[in-house]
Design a binder for these strands. Structure first.
Lengths: 218, 218
DNA sequence: TTTTTATTTTAGGCAAAGCTAAATAATATT
DNA sequence: AATATTATTTAGCTTTGCCTAAAATAAAAA
């Protein structure tokens, strides 16, 4: 169990996000990391020497099996810390991402295991995203976009996309949270918006909101 | 509120540990940090440019007011995280130091404040060391070495020195914990050891153990 | 007070991680 | 197929932070 720099871990994370175990272009990686292409070329060269990625010059970079394993371990930490911050410390889901980006680099198997237990062995984080298991297995990705349901369906919100601060703010002002249940009242053929109702009334969700909110049918 | 590198923070911490707001020699600092003198010379030069320390070449380095403020903020984080690890995650007090050394560098006022609240606004960490307040005030340093009490005193353990793994192991095997109360049964004029008794029996504590265990009289 | 010893600083190197500018390869267009 | 455009890599520079070896300074001993 070698130890890696924060920068290395960020590259691994970005590669996993962009392509999973598939090749990723230098440019896409550069954009995601927020660095220039030339810096990325160097960085992946270093990662290649540690056998975390396979590099084909001018073609692309691809995580090795070990790289994927590491990426999942980091993602596990990230999502566990997010869960801690929201469930235990009372942060809002829009605030936790940058904090988890720092905490995910803390090096300690034992800490992760204990945190996992402390949080009640969660399968999903506060956004509903699956938390990788210790062994790398992934719990199911839950739900379908709200737009996919039809009038009369009873649904429960189970996941939201990380679509930026404004999106989370909108969720907050509309009082929409994971676990909420609604009835699909109507769907607009004009602008693809959806009307939901609950005990506390009914409201319309825009197409863009629907696309980033996932639910299951009850 | 500037942000500092981990290395910088470690120097600040070391300086505070070694001298508080008093000058510290290059050599002592080097030893504490675990780097060569030449590296330290450079490092403190950088810190000087950020007005965190005053440097007098060949003489010594001294934290500025701002440096002391930062040192206390880091110590606060360190001790809050140690408290979290022991109280919430069930780590043993001997395991938490290296973890807290990582966690203390996490950058977020809000996180520290929320953690503090979550832990019940503690004044002392699991070793009994005072946790600096938000504003830099220091709660009292508790207790006197066990060797300072006399036969007949009833005492409560309130603090232990961070005297290394073997010391903590010894505490564990002897089942000595913060909060335990004892009666001083006898003190040896020969080897300065002390006999303590509780409901579960009595035992002798060596001079070296006594020197690292602090208690208050009840 | 001079000399010896110990400490500290300078000088010069190395690796990580970023940058810009120039060169090269791959892709798209005519 | 030849050329133009876009993407990627190379080359060379910067900062942080560590290193070793040599020079300079301060402290201790003679």
């Amino acid at each position: 169990m070698k130890t890696h720099t924060e920068s290395e871990e960020n590259y691994i994370k970005a590669l996993y996000h962009l392509g999973g175990d598939q090749p990723v272009s230098n440019g896409d990686l550069a954009q995601r990391i927020g660095a220039k292409g030339s810096s990325v070329t160097q960085a992946v060269k270093r990662l290649g020497q540690k056998d975390l990625v396979d590099v084909v010059p001018y073609k692309g970079v691809q995580l090795t099996a070990e790289g994927v394993r590491l990426a999942k371990a980091i993602l596990r930490k990230h999502r566990l810390w997010e869960t801690f911050l929201v469930d235990k410390l009372g942060f809002g889901w829009e605030e936790v991402h940058p904090l988890a980006e720092q905490l995910e680099h803390i090096q300690s198997e034992e800490l992760v295991d204990r945190l996992f237990q402390f949080l009640g062995s969660p399968k999903h984080d506060p956004h509903g995203d699956p938390i990788p298991e210790r062994d790398g297995q992934m719990p199911p990705v839950l739900g379908q976009p709200v737009g996919a349901f039809v009038t009369g369906n009873e649904i429960r919100i189970v996941r939201v996309e990380d679509a930026g601060t404004e999106f989370f703010d909108q969720l907050d002002t509309m009082n929409i949270n994971l676990g909420n249940t609604y009835m699909v009242q109507a769907t607009s053929a004009f602008d693809a918006s959806v009307q939901l109702s609950s005990t506390s009334g009914s409201f319309w969700l825009s197409k863009d909101m629907c696309a980033n909110i996932y639910a299951i049918r009850l």
